[in-house]
């Protein structure tokens, strides 16, 4: 990444504004729960207190501080998003690169598999997979002699599993790029010098894809965050007392009723999440404009 590139990025208003918001959310997520006078699962005497001087985001049914919980949820959601995106990157790039580089029948077969996987409802399978593997991983952790980790099984799964089913688009894009790059002169030169296929692929071809991979990495993070929250919303993801944005929004949705609306329970985590998703989408779009001039809209 050279300096001219960085300057172009920062000159793009979409990129700089969304980076600023993301930095703000991240710093708040890291420092917030630590600076806050309340703990995220500490019960308080004030139940359903509206936002005010003592509780900026109000309190919930058990008197817990909503803002602290939303920031704790931000930690979890952001971590899951980042790790999921990285897992999807690893699988997608490897799969797409191998497929494109191999070409011919292997390529056709590998891409056919991607087509097939595209045509089944992914989230439905994610729901089945997560709840089934949860029990497996629990049993495995107990078998390994770490029963104290067993309650965290779902957490581990969310970290790895959501990325593991999210690599299809990345694979397609990387494959397309590799397909055209491998015909270029520098690849021929590398081959003439007697370099192995692995060296050509990883040292010569893949470094050319950094830009486009970063764009899709940025666009994958919000998708993973969304899926994690969706699972948690349905009660299949992060388990209490831990809370992600999805769990908090679900609780907020459950407590609104016609007699008294505890709107802050819904609005605080929802706006934190919407703000983050929006800036991630902005960032991805902006980066795409800068890095991939052909995809400019």
């Amino acid at each position: 990444m050279d300096r001219a590139f960085l300057r172009r990025c920062l000159a793009n208003r979409r990129i700089s504004v969304s980076l600023a918001i993301l930095a703000l959310v991240s710093v708040a997520a890291i420092l917030g729960p630590w600076l806050s006078p309340y703990s995220h699962d500490g019960l308080g005497p004030l139940r359903f207190a509206p936002p005010g001087a003592a509780h900026w985001g109000g309190t919930d049914l058990l008197g817990r501080d909503v803002l602290t919980r939303a920031l704790m949820g931000a930690r979890i959601s952001l971590m899951v998003g980042l790790s999921g995106a990285l897992v999807s990157l690893a699988i997608g790039v490897t799969y797409g690169a191998v497929s494109g580089y191999a070409g011919g029948k292997t390529d056709a077969l590998m891409m056919r598999l991607v087509d097939v996987l595209y045509s089944i409802p992914r989230l439905v399978f994610v729901i089945v997979l997560i709840s089934v593997l949860d029990l497996r991983v629990r049993a495995a952790l107990v078998g390994l002699g770490h029963p104290e980790w067993a309650p965290q099984a779902k957490f581990i799964l969310l970290f790895i599993g959501l990325g593991a089913v999210q690599w299809l688009s990345m694979a397609r894009i990387v494959r397309g790029q590799v397909l055209s790059l491998k015909e270029r002169q520098f690849v021929l030169a590398a081959r003439a010098l007697g370099q192995s296929h692995a060296a050509i692929l990883f040292r010569h071809i893949l470094p050319n894809l950094v830009g486009i991979v970063i764009v899709y990495l940025t666009l994958t993070i919000p998708v993973v965050i969304l899926e994690e929250s969706l699972l948690s919303f349905l009660g299949l993801g992060v388990q209490p007392p831990m809370a992600s944005w999805g769990t908090l929004i679900a609780q907020g949705a459950q407590t609104i009723n016609p007699i008294k609306s505890y709107w802050w329970l819904l609005v605080v985590p929802a706006s934190a999440m919407a703000m983050t998703l929006m800036s991630l989408n902005f960032l991805g779009d902006g980066l795409r404009d800068v890095l991939d001039p052909r995809a400019r809209r």
């Binding site: 919000p222 969304l226 929250s229 969706l230 919303f233 999805g246 929004i249 679900a250 907020g252 949705a253 609104i256 009723n257 016609p258 609306s261 709107w263 819904l266 609005v267 929802a270 999440m273 919407a274 998703l277 929006m278 989408n281 902005f282």
Partner: peptide, 28 residues
Amino acid sequence: LVGVSLPSFILGPLLMLVFSFWLGWFPV
């Protein structure tokens, strides 16, 4: 751009809050 970043499970409860509870236009 705002709409793209608001998933259904945020919109759903929000719509319910505004249009069912506050305005009373639609059933819950």
